[in-house]
Deep mutational scan, measured.
Amino acid sequence: EAEIKAARERAIVPLEARMKQFKDMLLERGVSAFSTWEKELHKIVFDPRYLLLNPKERKQVFDQYVKTR
Rank of each mutant, 00 (worst) to 15 (best):
K56S: 15
S32Q: 03
E9A: 10
K59A: 11
K20I: 02
I12A: 09
E1M: 15
L41A: 09
A6D: 10
E28Y: 05
I44M: 07
W37H: 03
Y65S: 03
S32T: 09
P55N: 14
R58I: 02
S35W: 01
P48G: 08
R10E: 12
E28A: 07
L51R: 12
V31K: 01
F34V: 11
L26G: 00
E3P: 05
A17G: 14
V61M: 12
E16V: 07
E3Q: 14
W37M: 08
K43T: 02
K43Q: 04
D47L: 00
F34Q: 14
R8F: 05
K39E: 13
A2D: 06
L41R: 11
F34D: 08
D24V: 11
I12F: 07
A6P: 08
D63C: 10
I12R: 10
A2I: 04
E1S: 05
Y50T: 03
L53D: 00
V61E: 06
E3V: 10
I44A: 06
F22Q: 00
V31Y: 02
Y50P: 00
R29V: 10
V61K: 01
F62N: 00
T68C: 07
F62H: 03
E28D: 12
V66L: 07
I12Q: 07
D47K: 01
I12V: 14
G30A: 08
E3R: 07
L41H: 11
M25R: 00
R58P: 01
H42I: 06
A2T: 13
L27F: 08
Q60L: 12
M25W: 00
R8T: 10
Q64E: 13
F62V: 02
P48C: 09
A2E: 13
D24A: 09
Q60N: 12
E3L: 08
V31I: 14
E57T: 07
Y65W: 14
K56I: 13
F46T: 15
G30N: 12
K39Q: 12
F22D: 00
E28M: 04
P14N: 05
E16R: 13
L53H: 00
T68Q: 13
E38C: 03
K23L: 10
P48F: 07
S35E: 12
A17E: 13
S32F: 03
K56D: 11
F34Y: 14
K43V: 01
V31E: 01
D63S: 13
E28F: 03
K56M: 08
Y50L: 04
K43W: 02
A17P: 14
L53I: 08
K5Y: 05
D47V: 00
P14R: 06
G30I: 02
R18H: 04
I44D: 01
E28G: 03
I12S: 12
S32M: 05
E1L: 04
R29C: 12
K5T: 06
A6N: 13
R58Q: 12
L51H: 10
H42M: 04
V13R: 07
A33Q: 12
R49F: 00
A17V: 10
R10N: 14
V13N: 09
D47F: 01
H42W: 05
T36Y: 05
P48V: 06
P55E: 11
Q64W: 06
L52H: 05
P14L: 06
A2Q: 11
Q21M: 12
Q21C: 04
E28Q: 12
E16D: 09
S35I: 00
I12E: 14
D63L: 06
T36M: 04
D63A: 12
K23F: 14
E38P: 03
S35M: 03
V45M: 08
L52F: 11
L15G: 05
W37I: 08
A6L: 11
K5V: 06
R10C: 08
Q64T: 12
R18P: 03
L27N: 12
L51F: 05
N54W: 05
A7I: 09
N54H: 06
E40Y: 01
K20N: 08
E1Q: 06
P14D: 09
E9P: 07
L27Y: 15
E9T: 11
Q60M: 13
A2V: 05
D24C: 11
V13C: 08
M25C: 11
A17K: 12
A17W: 07
L15R: 10
K20R: 08
